[in-house]
Design a binder for these strands. Structure first.
Length: 798
RNA sequence: GCUUGUGUGGCGGAAUUGGUAGACGCGCUGGACUCAAAAUCCAGUGAUUCUUGAAUCGUGUGGGUUCGAUUCCCACCACAAGCACCA
């Protein structure tokens, strides 16, 4: 019986004591392979099954690549700053710094037990001053380059968490963490101008090997739309406003305009008799949370301002309304209403009895707006044109000529809100002088250490906890009285560049050595959950692009290939967690009862890595059984010095399939091939040394503990980790004969053994002589005989 | 509503460019070993119909292309994820 407990302990200690997986990053003599996991936040709850899945997958790749002669960088670290870690600390009444340290120890211990081949000399933690030194330094560069800006703007405010949040941290009007309500509030905030990188972030997607769905999510999030800006003069006053539209071709159909309730012009142009109603409406909108706004999206509301705008093309006057269906933070916060050809405008016009003028033929304007193409009518310059593209071109050049409009591009992506009114994060290295102007700290004053604070709980008012530390917040800097920025950076700050630091984690002079970066970047394989599709994965791409342009990072994209592991569901097919604790699995229990090899093997065998899959206790038993079957085979079978010819073809097939499948991260089918091989050996009752050693190498990336033990029992002194990966010979795979199917009129009727040198004529003769086939051919005429070598025989008879 | 996926036995899941559907595992059934059980090993296992042997059906539904479709095309249904008054 395989004593997994003893053996796993033995090898975990061996790897640690011998620093088996230490990487010399300066060794450029071998090709490099950089394989990375999304680092966890040390939360107090142990690693879950999803971590195990992703980490095992990268570990298999790291282990195989080492054996294939690559210099492999496979590091691990801690996403230790930020909301999740702090929330857990508050919940358990611990100080985040103590708590985080403790959790890191627990996590690290678990990773050892899992047999993951990390180089722990490269370990980093985002809350370590040696690390956040450079997070602050990058922020400072962004500030100096005017990409980190102080902005007074409506932000997502979450009172329960006591902080503002970035857009990707708000889901359906609630905070991603905790599910607390989020409202819009005007606040002066540090933001990062990620919209400036919108086009580069879009273009970059074309050159990386990422899941299509994730690329699509990023494209949607960036939300590029091409259209025009058109100026509308307000009648009777010297004011004008611009609207953004993707349909300038419908300008002859404009029957009203709408400003967002927050638009700066509203108070200036509203007429006396309307101003009261307008003010009341504005108040109502302000009180609504984002959640209410989206919930109330069925019925349109709005108020007429009393003012009129002049259509720049027709010179006709149209009413100006305000309505909250126009968002203040998209486009210009003002739209032109074309009810005939836009469904929202249509509903609005219907409700408030505004004219609907069709300008494109088609559809049924009595029922709904017509969105399609057609012949332009009622459109003066555009009448008779049939193509939308042509109409847009023509009207835009006309608008440009009369200087009342121009081509324009709009993005959905907003500024990245970068400050948190919380304690547990990187201090922002900025001081304000007596005038309130921000100034970055000198390089020599970095890192700016996060001060100790006994009471770090967030306030409900937007006041940062650090403000309570008066002697820190109000200080003298370079002989000048200053106040410090007391907000801290979001959790996504450190994770936006940590992949660069692993390459040179102890460098005290720069974020990482340039020559090393050049050799090691980009990350060859990055695995993590799909929940980071727009947060972390977009932010890292932007920071990396910025650093690339500064000559500080060597590649414009940081992650060449990205894979998301699927979710491991409970045995009931539902997400594990608090709701169904009886269906939640703690990986530690599995390691205790079956060993880490079994857990690794089982999770890799469950199904495709990227799919969601339900847990099965019986499946774990099955994996365990397979491990014992291998162990017993090596214990009891005769290992011969001569080859066994019966296994030759299958062995080479197995080497080929397993190698290719690992490369494509198809671990489930690789394992099934390994099982087929073992089943065949059991039939044969003996195995040659060559195949025995080859097989154990093939499986070693998945079950490294058992593999090391068997390798040693086979008489080897060194770890299997750097042994040469087995080769296969295509010639040995080819078998003399192959059995293929015979179809008659599309139905499978039998099979025939063919040699690969057989000609079509020979095969035809062979098939015709088969007894089982003859009965289908009697009294029939063969119309067509098809022979696809290696595949099938297909006969058409009549 | 839009976007992107997914849909195959009792279950998890396999199937190069269209070429013997259900590999491999779980479960189940039978056998060997055992006083017995467990473990282990061996064999069988998509459904239906009848007599050994075969026939028919079968990859969400309905069509189409093809000698041949899980795979390609069209329409639809269900589920999941993302976005959502984005002008």
């Amino acid at each position: 019986m395989y004593d997994f407990k003893k053996i796993e302990q033995k090898w975990a200690k061996y790897w640690q004591d011998n620093k088996t997986f230490q990487t010399d990053v300066w060794d450029f003599s071998k090709p490099k392979y950089y394989v990375l996991d999304m680092f966890p936040y040390p939360s107090g709850v142990a690693l879950h099954c999803g971590h195990v899945e992703g980490y095992t997958a990268t570990d298999i790749m790291a282990r195989m690549k080492r054996m294939q002669g690559y210099n492999v960088l496979h590091p691990m670290g801690w996403d230790a700053f930020g909301l999740p870690a702090e929330q857990y600390a508050i919940k358990t009444g611990n100080h985040p710094s103590v708590f985080t340290q403790k959790n890191i120890e627990t996590f690290k211990n678990q990773l050892f037990l899992m047999g993951l081949s990390y180089d722990w000399d490269k370990e980093i933690s985002t809350c370590d001053p040696k690390f956040y030194h450079w997070t602050q330094w990058i922020f400072k560069q962004l500030f100096l380059d005017n990409l980190a800006i102080l902005k007074d703007m409506p932000v997502n405010w979450c009172e329960e968490l006591g902080t503002v949040l970035a857009n990707d941290e708000v889901i359906n009007g609630k905070s991603e963490r905790g599910g607390f309500p989020v409202i819009r509030k005007n606040m002066k905030q540090w933001v990062i101008d990620i919209p400036k990188y919108a086009d580069k972030l879009l273009e970059g997607l074309n050159e990386i090997d990422w899941p299509l769905s994730t690329k699509e999510i990023q494209r949607n999030w960036i939300g590029k739309s091409i259209g025009a800006l058109i100026d509308f003069q307000v009648e009777g006053v010297d004011e004008k406003f611009s609207v953004f539209t993707t349909r300038p071709d419908t300008i002859y159909g404009v029957t009203y305009c709408v400003l967002s309730p927050e638009h700066e012009l509203v108070n200036k142009i509203s007429t006396k008799d309307q101003i009261e109603a307008i003010k009341k409406y504005q108040k109502e909108c302000e009180a609504k949370s984002d959640l209410e706004r989206t919930e109330l999206n069925k019925d349109k509301t709005g108020i007429f301002t009393g003012a009129y705008a002049i259509n720049p093309v027709t010179k006709k006057r149209v009413e100006i309304w305000i309505s909250d269906y126009v968002l203040s933070n998209y486009g210009t916060g003002a739209v032109m209403g074309v009810p005939a050809h836009d469904q929202r405008d249509y509903e609005f016009a219907r409700k408030f009895q505004i004219d609907i003028i069709p300008v494109i033929k088609g559809g049924n304007i009595d029922k709904e707006a017509y969105i399609g193409e057609g012949e332009y009518i009622n459109s003066d310059l555009l009448n008779g044109i049939n193509s939308k593209e042509q109409a847009i071109d023509k009207i835009v050049s006309y608008l440009e000529k009369i200087k009342l409009g121009k081509k324009s591009v709009n993005y959905r992506i907003r500024d990245w809100i970068f400050a948190r009114q919380r304690y547990w994060g990187e201090p922002i290295p900025i001081v304000y002088d007596s005038e309130g102007a921000p100034r970055a700290l000198d390089d020599k004053d970095l890192p700016l250490i996060l001060p100790e604070l006994a009471d770090y709980t967030p306030s409900k008012t937007g006041e940062s906890p650090l403000k309570k530390k008066k002697e820190w917040a109000n200080t003298v800097y370079q002989e000048e009285k200053v106040t410090r920025e007391t907000s801290t950076m979001p959790g996504s700050a450190g994770s936006s560049w940590y992949f660069l630091r692993y390459i040179d984690p102890h460098n005290e002079n720069e974020l990482a050595n340039k020559e090393l970066l050049k050799h090691w970047m980009p990350v060859d394989l990055y695995i993590g959950g799909p929940e980071h599709a727009v947060g972390h994965l977009l932010y890292s791409r932007m920071w990396n692009k910025y650093l690339y342009e500064k000559g500080l990072a060597p590649t414009s994209e940081p992650f060449k290939k990205l894979v998301h592991q699927g979710m491991i569901l409970g045995a009931n097919g539902i997400k594990m967690g608090k709701r169904y604790p009886e269906f939640s699995i703690n990986p530690n229990d599995i390691i205790r009862d079956y060993g880490a090899d079994t857990l690794r093997l089982y999770e890799m065998f469950m199904g495709p890595i990227e799919a969601d899959k339900p847990w099965s206790d019986a499946g774990v038993e099955g994996a365990h059984k397979f491990i014992n079957r291998i162990w017993n085979l090596y214990e009891t079978f005769n290992i011969t010095e001569e080859k066994n010819p019966n296994l030759e073809s299958l062995y080479h097939q197995t080497v080929k399939k397993v190698t290719n499948d690992y490369e494509k991260l198809k671990f489930n089918t690789a394992i099934s091939q390994l099982m087929v091989f073992i089943n065949a050996v059991y039939k044969d009752k003996e195995i040659s040394r060559e195949y025995a050693e080859g097989f154990i190498k093939l499986i070693s990336p998945i079950t490294p503990f058992m593999a090391e033990e068997i390798w040693q029992k086979l008489g080897h002194k060194d770890s299997i980790s750097y042994e040469k990966w087995p080769n296969f010979d295509e010639k040995c795979i080819q078998e003399e004969t192959k059995t293929i199917g015979i179809q008659i009129n599309g139905k499978l009727r039998g099979e025939v053994e063919v040699r690969k040198e057989d000609t079509e004529k020979e095969v035809e003769e062979k098939v015709k002589n088969l007894e089982t086939i003859q009965k289908y051919l009697q009294e029939k005429e063969i119309q067509k005989f098809i022979y696809i070598p290696n595949r099938i025989v297909s006969i058409i008879v009549k």
